[in-house]
Amino acid sequence: MNLERLKQEFSSRKKGILGALASGTDASPKGSVDKQILPIMELLNSHPGAVTTSSCSGRVSVFLEGRKQSSTTPALRQADGVDVAAAGGKGGDGRWLFVTHDPLSDDILQESQDDATLRTLFGGVPSEPAATEQLGSLSSETRYVHFKFEPMILHILTETLEVANRLLTCAISSSFRESGIVSPLKNPVVAVRTMGLAFDAPIGIYDPERNIIQRFMEPSGLRLLMQLTNDRFRENSKRIDSLHKHLLSAMEVTDTPLESKQLRAARKRTEGIDKGRQIAAIRETRETEPEDPLDDGIPF
């Protein structure tokens, strides 16, 4: 496939993607773009050689697995009228009980809110502590309830491999170390991701006959997971900020220009804010430090 055709295909796909974003169309379960990642998306989408295709700024969720295939019965298919899911899958009535893209609030972490917290985390499904004998009778059909944290993930369609490689360097430099390039011979897609912050903890099993969750841990243990989640959110935010700064820096390189007028304006705004903060910090330091009578203000 020649370069000119690749450029035409990229241009057509980017136009369609940006048109869908402008109309508010979003195929994610949430139905909208996460606000935490908007600055990076706007930065990338204003560049002529890149466009974001999917994104998530990071989320915490409680997920109920779907019905599973029994090891003692013949294979079931959707054609048989029974919907089943693979391990951890969303089919067979698998669903999110709770999901948010923001750090968990103080209210949900308070010890006095145990009952309310459990109702929130389990999507209104009642829960009770699991008995020891129940934990000894788990099978391949058991439906687990998972507490998950998933860090930021971003997919970027690029016009050329040169642009893709520069964006990949930015991602890895910002600690998104599992990032990579997909379909390098066509319009390359840069997958920005990290697994170091992710975790998945089973916290209970589901009893469909009684519609109840049998918990593996007490509310105090769940609060510990929630506190860990907020720690991961903070680190995730640092990496997102780092990626934004690396992208701004890469886009001002002159030998392979990546900076459009809109990107230059965004970079200048960021630089202006940073410079203003530095000046304010210097002034504050001078106002609080005692004056040196031998200091004439001239640097050595």
Rank of each mutant, 00 (worst) to 15 (best):
F300H: 14
R177A: 15
Q262C: 07
Q262T: 15
L121F: 10
E42Y: 06
S173T: 13
T285Q: 12
D207Q: 12
G124I: 03
F10N: 01
A75C: 13
E4G: 12
Q110L: 14
V60A: 15
G124H: 00
T52Y: 12
K261T: 13
T120G: 02
I40T: 15
P188M: 13
A280K: 13
S179I: 00
G94R: 00
L44T: 00
K90A: 15
T72S: 07
A280R: 02
H47T: 01
A87H: 04
P103Y: 04
S105P: 03
I156T: 04
R59E: 04
K30E: 11
F233P: 01
E159R: 08
L157Q: 12
F98H: 05
D26T: 12
Q69C: 14
S242I: 10
D83Y: 02
N236E: 09
K90T: 03
D200G: 15
R210T: 08
A131R: 10
G88Y: 01
G24V: 13
S28A: 09
V82F: 07
E259P: 08
I279P: 06
G297S: 07
S242R: 01
A266G: 04
D200T: 12
T194P: 00
G58D: 05
E111S: 15
A20H: 11
S23M: 11
M217I: 12
T142E: 09
G221E: 03
V145M: 00
N230E: 14
E259F: 05
I240S: 01
R234H: 14
S70L: 10
A130P: 02
A20F: 09
E9Y: 07
F233D: 10
K90L: 13
E141Q: 14
N165A: 08
S139C: 11
C56W: 01
G58M: 02
C56P: 04
L168A: 10
D241I: 08
V163W: 00
G31Q: 00
S137N: 12
R210D: 09
V33F: 05
F199R: 05
H47F: 06
E4M: 10
H47N: 15
F122W: 10
A280D: 11
K15C: 08
G276Y: 09
M251T: 00
V82W: 05
S260K: 01
